[in-house]
Deep mutational scan, measured.
Amino acid sequence: DESNKPILLPNESQSFERSVQLLDQIPSYDTHKIAVLYVGEGQSNSELAILSNEHGSYRYTEFLTGLGRLIELKDCQPDKVYLGGLDVCGEDGQFTYCWHDDIMQAVFHIATLMPTKDVDKHRCDKKRHLGNDFVSIVYNDSGEDFKLGTIKGQFNFVHVIVTPLDYECNLVSLQCRKDMEGLVDTSVAKIVSDRNLPFVARQMALHANMASQVHHSRSNPTDIYPSKWIARLRHIKRLRQRICEEAAYSNPSLPLVHPPSHSKAPAQTPAEPTPGYEVGQRKRLISSVEDFTE
């Protein structure tokens, strides 16, 4: 099969070098950035008060330690540790928490760990991170309901609301924008112990962030949302095809390698009803078989 044979790379090609550099910018793992907010007593309706908090309760602090690993920003190499735009020179604080497994990295933009500057009256330095995160974990210690939209931002799609209760338990629920209701189930609340709260809140936030990324990708319907490693695979396959075309153009005697095509017509299947918005969006999480067989 010609399409699977190794090909020689061009010795000097600026377009090839640019493509390789672009490939280096696509990590081999999925990345997520999640905002974390603490809401104190009497702050449920005040964005400024929430963003001005420099610490929270003892249970909130224990919750943070379970979310991930504490890292010092100045020691991080952005090409190895995903920071979601946090500055490593102290502009966004000294520490944050991050978490990773074999296929993804997540960083938490924690408002109480970011510096509260006197010259920044409206807390814009914090909002440029927190307001651009799709998902926020809100530790609501106010005793009042927290409403979506209290923290203004164009991309605040989903809130994971943590409400501490007695007996070391917590109520965990989801809020989302109306255009996200087909992807996020907000109907079920959970009672979770303090011990298990970081794991549950983190998983709910990661799932909500993946759904938000799919939702946000609708602005470019021709580019369905893939995982990062599938995006790398697609980029490599496009690069291979372009090299083959350039080689055939410079030397017409060489065969032009095309991806294999299936001449056999697909079997006719009964027509199915058109899937609704929710089903269609969830299918976009699934990769096409052509990603692996071309």
Rank of each mutant, 00 (worst) to 15 (best):
F292G: 14
W229S: 11
T269R: 09
P255K: 09
E47A: 04
V257N: 14
A271Q: 11
P226L: 06
S261F: 06
H32Y: 12
V279I: 09
T186H: 07
T274H: 11
Q268D: 12
C76L: 07
V214M: 10
F16D: 08
L171V: 13
K190N: 14
I151E: 03
E41Y: 12
D185I: 02
K5V: 15
P164L: 00
K264D: 15
D30N: 08
V257W: 10
R242F: 14
Y249A: 13
E91T: 08
H109P: 02
E272M: 08
G182D: 12
C124S: 14
P259T: 13
D1R: 07
G276M: 11
V200P: 00
E181C: 07
V279Y: 08
V172K: 00
T163P: 00
A35T: 07
H216W: 14
S193D: 04
G149F: 03
H122W: 07
Y277W: 12
R232E: 11
Q77T: 13
D185S: 04
A189P: 13
Q21P: 06
D118K: 15
I161V: 14
C124W: 15
I243P: 10
G42V: 01
L183A: 05
L83N: 14
N53P: 02
P10M: 13
V81C: 11
A35I: 02
V257M: 12
F292M: 15
K147L: 08
W99C: 03
K178H: 11
R242T: 15
D75H: 12
S3Q: 13
Q25D: 14
D120T: 10
V135E: 00
L148R: 14
V162G: 00
K190C: 15
T116S: 14
F108P: 01
N170M: 02
N140E: 00
S142G: 03
C98Y: 15
L64Y: 11
D30S: 06
K228S: 06
E41W: 07
E181D: 03
D194F: 00
C98S: 06
Y249M: 14
P266G: 11
V192G: 00
H216I: 09
Y225S: 14
R240I: 05
N11G: 11
I230A: 13
D194A: 00
N170T: 03
C98A: 11
V135C: 04
T65H: 13
L130A: 04
D75L: 07
D24M: 02
T163S: 05
M180I: 14
F157C: 14
V107C: 07
D79P: 08
M104D: 15
A247S: 08
V188Y: 06
A267M: 09
H100L: 05
G66D: 01
W99F: 08
V20G: 06
D125P: 09
E12S: 06
T150P: 03
S44Q: 12
F157T: 07
Q281G: 13
V119G: 13
G66W: 00
Q154G: 15
A211Y: 09
P221S: 06
A205I: 00
F157Q: 13
H262C: 12
C124N: 15
D179I: 04
T186G: 06
L130V: 12
I26A: 05
V81Q: 15
H235S: 08
I151R: 02
Q175C: 06
I26N: 06
A49V: 02
Y249L: 14
S15C: 13
E2I: 09
R69Q: 14
R242W: 15
K117E: 10
N196V: 04
G276C: 12
M114I: 05
H159V: 10
T31F: 11
S44D: 03
D185C: 04
F108M: 02
L285K: 05
V135R: 01
C244V: 08
Y29L: 13
S288N: 09
P273H: 10
G131R: 15
E91L: 11
A267V: 07
P260D: 15
G280T: 10
L165Y: 04
E41Q: 08
S187A: 08
R123F: 15
E91K: 15
L148F: 15
G131N: 15
S187T: 12
N209T: 13
E41F: 08
V172L: 06
L37Q: 01
C98D: 05
S250E: 13
A189Q: 11
Q203E: 13
H216N: 05
V158P: 01
N11S: 11
W229Q: 12
V289H: 13
D223N: 10
S57V: 00
P273M: 13
V135Y: 00
W99V: 02
F146L: 05
P198R: 00
T61V: 07
D291Y: 13
S288P: 14
D185G: 08
H159A: 15
N4H: 12
N220W: 04
H262I: 13
G56Q: 02
G149C: 08
S173M: 11
D1L: 13
S193H: 04
G149W: 03
S46Y: 03
I286R: 10
K190S: 15
K5P: 15
V20D: 09
T31E: 15
E91D: 09
T116Q: 07
T150C: 07
S253V: 11
T112D: 02
R218M: 10
L256G: 15
L239G: 09
I191V: 08
Y58T: 07
P198W: 00
S3I: 10
S57R: 01
D118C: 12
S212C: 15
Q94V: 09
H32N: 04
R240Q: 14
E54Y: 03
P266I: 14
A106V: 13
S15M: 09
S52I: 01
A267E: 12
N196Y: 04
L67A: 00
T61P: 01
E17Y: 07
D1N: 12
H262F: 08
S136I: 05
I103D: 15
P260I: 13
K121T: 12
V158H: 01
H216Q: 08
P198Y: 00
G85A: 11
N4D: 14
L70C: 06
N196G: 04
V39G: 00
L22I: 06
L70E: 05
F292P: 13
D145V: 06
V119H: 09
L197Y: 00
V81W: 13
G56K: 02
Q241W: 07
H109E: 07
Q175N: 05
I224Y: 06
S250I: 08
A271E: 12
V188C: 12
I50K: 02
C124M: 15
F16M: 10
P115S: 05
Q94M: 15
R59I: 00
H122R: 08
R59Y: 00
S136T: 13
E144H: 04
F155H: 11
Q105Y: 12
E246G: 14
Y249Q: 09
D75A: 12
H32E: 02
I161Q: 05
N45M: 06
W99H: 05
S219R: 11
S227P: 07
G90T: 09
K74P: 09
I243A: 07
D141K: 01
P198T: 02
V214H: 15
A201N: 00
M180W: 02
D194K: 00
L9W: 10
D194Q: 01
E272N: 10
R59S: 01
M204H: 03
Q25K: 11
A106E: 04
S288I: 06
N220E: 13
D30H: 05
S142E: 01
L70G: 06
E168A: 07
Q77M: 12
